[in-house]
């Protein structure tokens, strides 16, 4: 079994970067100066982490949360008010759907993130790394959306259109740019599945294991969904919150060759024991060809110093797993 390490979602945004964003919003920082800060701060922070990672993201440095500013690139959607992100003391601005949704022809916020990835990938430390671009999943997007239009009667319709008219065009858009789409789908949970038909929503999603990674976290997902989706895409599961998934892996593994295992708790500062964690992961050794070791969710819930320590842990687990 091969082992890789990955950053999932964002990396804690430094205070000095946040100050730069504030100054830019107040018109006290020009575009060029802002970008100098973006590159300097991202490099400074991520460079320390990237040596331990095989897959890396843009750190979501240009994002306030999983929805913002991405939803600015979607026609028919406006930025809403602050709502709690699941059971975390972290708040996101929800999407307000006011018309038929569609990815804009020139998705400027995605372009800015791609620009940052391109700048980073030229750095020697980032050479050879695979870049993932975190984006909200259809069920999560629908779950947080407030529908203020007659275009959609329910969340399933909205999620189906999100796949067809937002995600699929986006996957096409980044296909030639060497990026993997990292779909964040915490709402692929048992309770959510009763409201939204995940099977219908995901039926038309394009891409495959190479370029679409669907990451589920927090809630217990329906095993059937994991099995179905993992036969077509690379799936990430949260083994911190759902350790019982390891009891009977055959119940949810869909004959796939690669799986992402979220074994590092991104919501607690306590450091995991790499030996114990590697031992846990070995239960999957004869079930998959490769495993991507990661945190269960975005590291943005942690202070930066702890996020660095946890990233270093990923590499230690990988080494233990190789022995």
């Amino acid at each position: 079994m091969q082992a890789f390490t990955s950053l999932t979602g964002g990396f804690p945004r430094t205070r000095s970067f946040a100050n730069a964003v504030r100054r830019k919003e107040k018109g006290k920082l020009g575009v060029d100066e802002f970008w100098e800060t973006v590159v300097r701060e991202t490099k400074r922070s991520l460079a320390r982490a990237v040596r331990y990672l095989d897959y890396v993201t843009d750190g979501m440095y240009l994002c306030d949360d999983i929805f913002n500013p991405f939803i600015k690139d979607i026609e028919g959607v406006k930025r809403g008010w602050l709502v709690r992100f699941y059971d975390n003391n972290f708040f996101v601005r929800n999407p307000i759907v006011r018309g038929k949704i569609r990815l804009k022809p020139n998705p400027s916020t995605v372009d800015e993130r791609i620009r940052l990835v391109n700048l980073l990938s030229r750095e020697p430390l980032f050479a050879g790394k695979s870049f993932r671009l975190p984006i909200p999943g259809p069920l999560t997007f629908a779950d947080f959306s407030v529908i203020e239009t007659s275009e959609y009667n329910d969340n399933t319709q909205l999620a189906v259109d999100y796949v067809k008219d937002v995600l699929n065009p986006l996957i096409e858009y980044v296909r030639g740019k060497g990026l993997i789409i990292e779909i964040h789908e915490p709402s692929l949970s048992a309770s959510q599945a009763s409201i939204v038909d995940w099977n219908e929503v995901y039926r038309d999603l394009i891409g495959g294991k190479e370029n679409v990674h669907i990451i589920q976290y927090f809630n217990q997902p329906p095993l059937e969904a994991l099995q179905t989706l993992s036969s077509r895409f690379t799936i990430g599961v949260d083994l911190v919150e759902n350790p019982s998934l390891l009891d009977n892996p055959d119940d949810w593994l869909g004959g796939e060759s690669v799986i992402q295992a979220g074994v590092i708790d991104a919501r607690n500062t306590k450091l995991e024991d790499p030996q114990e964690t590697a031992k846990t992961l070995k239960q999957l050794a004869d079930k998959v060809d490769a495993i991507i070791i990661s945190s269960n969710t975005t590291l943005e819930f942690l202070p930066e110093t702890v996020a660095h320590r946890k990233t270093r842990l990923l590499a230690r687990i990988k080494n233990k797993l190789a022995r």
């Binding site: 205070r15 306030d64 972290f90 708040f91 996101v92 601005r93 202070p303 110093t305 702890v306």
Partner: peptide, 17 residues
Amino acid sequence: FYGPVRVWGNNYFNKPA
């Protein structure tokens, strides 16, 4: 205290452990 964490946007909280 390990350092601040973001609560939303650019608003931070010195979350204790």
